[in-house]
Simulated assay, not measured.
Amino acid sequence: MYTPPAFREDDLSALHATIGAARLANLVTAGAEGVMATPLPLFLDPAEGSRGVLYGHLARANPQWKAASSGEALAIFMGPDAYVTPSWYAAKRETGKVVPTWNYVAVHAHGPVEFFEDTERLLAVVTRLTERHEGGRAAPWAVGDAPEGFIRAQLRGIVGLRMPITRLEGKRKLSQNRSAEDRAGVRAGLAASDDAADRAVAALIPR
């Protein structure tokens, strides 16, 4: 990922926070069959290894898990993003020398991916993913709410994945390269938007 110094994020806790907040990631692998990518919900276990370990699952029918991968896999996590119009810049009124851009937060996690079929490990992954996404609901659904035989049958249709993270790249492109006046204009413009993602980005713009 191309990351100019002004936008680089190296803090491990901040990188983990972006991963934790992402609802969906893209798992990318490359091999003799070419590049393959699958959108997947993944969760991070930060206590494993020096940078954490990612877990998830994909459909057994998905050919990605059977394809031999050359080199490490890549998991892409996107945070909030927003279009930035030049109309919000103070510089537009002063010089007119401005163009549109896009603000966003992204983390790229690299590491060797391993796939597994063990039923108990799969159940543990599915349970943790479910608890993560159901936890905030007033009446959360639990894996145990479904008949055990039904769940066991469902597990036969998926394959688990484990990806120890060897390298993390973080990028926070949030108008840091603009003047304080331009950043204030971007912040105000995004904060006034009806789009929740725009407002999320507004809260991240440095003052």
Rank of each mutant, 00 (worst) to 15 (best):
T127D: 11
T166S: 15
I158N: 05
G149F: 06
N62S: 04
A30M: 09
W141L: 14
T18A: 10
N26K: 14
A82W: 00
L123T: 10
G149R: 10
V105K: 00
T38S: 14
A6K: 01
I151A: 06
R172L: 10
V126S: 04
W141N: 13
I205C: 10
E94Y: 04
K92M: 06
S193V: 11
Y2C: 07
P147A: 11
A124F: 06
L129Q: 05
R178H: 15
Y2K: 04
L155W: 02
A142K: 15
S13D: 13
A184D: 13
D118W: 07
V201N: 02
G79F: 00
S50I: 09
V143K: 05
T95L: 03
A67Q: 04
I165R: 00
H16Y: 13
T166E: 07
G135P: 01
G56T: 07
A30R: 10
T119W: 04
A203M: 08
T127A: 11
P140I: 15
V201H: 07
L123R: 12
R51D: 06
I205K: 02
P140V: 15
S87W: 06
H108M: 08
M36Q: 15
Y104D: 04
A153L: 09
A139I: 05
P112S: 06
D194N: 12
F116W: 12
D194V: 14
E120M: 09
E169H: 09
L15P: 01
I19H: 01
V126A: 11
P100A: 03
R137Y: 09
W65V: 02
R183L: 08
W88E: 01
H108S: 07
R167H: 13
H110M: 12
G160K: 01
T101D: 02
G160I: 03
E72H: 08
A67F: 00
L27W: 02
Q64P: 00
A14V: 15
R93S: 11
H16E: 11
A191K: 09
P4I: 00
V105T: 10
I158Y: 01
P46W: 14
H108Q: 11
V35E: 15
A142C: 14
D198A: 13
R156Y: 09
